[in-house]
Design a protein around this nucleic acid. Structure first.
Lengths: 139, 139
DNA sequence: ACCTTGACTTGGACTAAGTCTATTGTAGGC
DNA sequence: GCCTACAATAGACTTAGTCCAAGTCAAGGT
């Protein structure tokens, strides 16, 4: 693992035990943890890590573009380490499960110039909402 | 005005001064207020209305499908009364301004069956992010 | 018109998520 | 091995939203 760690080191990040732990927790595909979940898992590996540090570290990773912040439900933000392959999210409205998906087509192309109101558009966020098979079964 | 009020009455809603005021505040196009902003404007018309009532009323309107809840920034949710014409949002990353836009094409169609993982998809939310002309000018 | 009743409203306490700050600790260059 | 600037810490604070018990009132029945 961690491409993530390698890249961060390459950007001149000072490497600390805390940052290493946060990066490790976030590693993998289909990972969409809240800050609190990240903190809980980080504490398991490094008991004295503080909430503030987790927030700081996540915020820095987002600024560096290594992690994406996702606000699927208006509650806690989630952090998605899969920042390199562009993708969208599929969210279960009942249990909150999230999957990464890769639709065909480019949503940016679907927005005609007349609908851009002079904005300089930098990215698009697409969230598909529905019910996952699990929840549908136990409905 | 208020189609919104008419529709709500038609659904057997008990009409109270508070609900009328909230509906009035939300009326119009390109309206995307936070719950607190709705409360502030409601108070101007009906000083004794409480925060809890505003939250209750907004929640009911969302349940009835008359208003859409938008979580653009992970901060306060915004409420969009334009629930009948499907549309997406264009958000300025600097000042937070929101515009309704109407892209060509159906994003739902862009998600192949192989990428649906058995989910029953009910809707799609698309958010274009960028910088508005105003902010670009004063950069 | 008045009564009744259950739906609606209220304010304040409570929770969750996140930010800020002053202090202490430490990675990495010399 | 020592410095120093950057990082981590604890805990107070802020913001957004929910919950609840008690009071109020819209609307239907008579």
């Amino acid at each position: 693992m961690s491409d993530l760690l390698e890249r961060l080191r390459g950007r001149g990040w000072r490497m600390t035990a805390q940052r290493r732990v946060v990066a490790e927790v976030l590693d993998g595909d289909h990972v969409h943890l809240t800050a609190d979940e990240v903190h809980a898992r980080a504490v398991a590996k490094l008991p004295e890590i503080s909430r503030a540090t987790v927030y700081n570290t996540l915020g820095e990773m987002v600024t560096l573009g290594e992690v994406i912040e996702v606000a699927t439900d208006g509650r806690a933000k989630r952090y998605d380490p899969n920042a390199h392959r562009p993708h969208q999210h599929l969210v279960c409205g009942r249990c909150g499960a999230i999957r990464d998906v890769h639709p065909a087509g480019d949503p940016l192309a679907d927005l005609p110039a007349t609908e851009r109101f002079g904005f300089t558009i930098s990215n698009v966020e697409v969230t598909y909402r529905g019910i996952c098979p699990n929840c549908a079964a136990t409905a």
